[in-house]
């Protein structure tokens, strides 16, 4: 994986992880308006980053429009 791709993927991972943390926090603090606002902002940022990555390098989930051949199976997988 080239370094520009790796860098962008790391940004997607960081943005998604922020959402996971806020998700868990909000499950036990469902009335925290400030945290919900931060979650909603981070979600917009994460969506934009993901869209950018998928446009340049291919799908992160199989539920993504594909060129032919089917891009989902393309290496690398995360464990490679």
């Amino acid at each position: 994986m080239d370094s520009a791709r790796e860098r962008l993927l790391r940004e997607v991972m960081a943005a998604d992880f922020t959402l996971i943390e806020l998700n868990l926090y909000l499950n036990t603090h469902p009335y925290d308006q400030r945290a919900i606002t931060i979650f909603n902002e981070c979600l917009q940022k994460a969506k934009a980053l993901r869209q950018n990555y998928e446009r340049l390098y291919g799908p992160i989930t199989p539920m993504t429009p594909s060129k032919c051949p089917w891009q989902w199976i393309e290496d690398p997988w995360p464990w490679q």
């Binding site: 989902w72 199976i73 393309e74 290496d75 997988w77 464990w79």
Partner: peptide, 14 residues
């Protein structure tokens, strides 16, 4: 899936 040798097999098991 970790030890599958082709893209198709990796994706199928995943």
């Amino acid at each position: 899936r970790f030890s599958m040798p082709t893209e198709e097999a990796r994706a199928t098991l995943n």
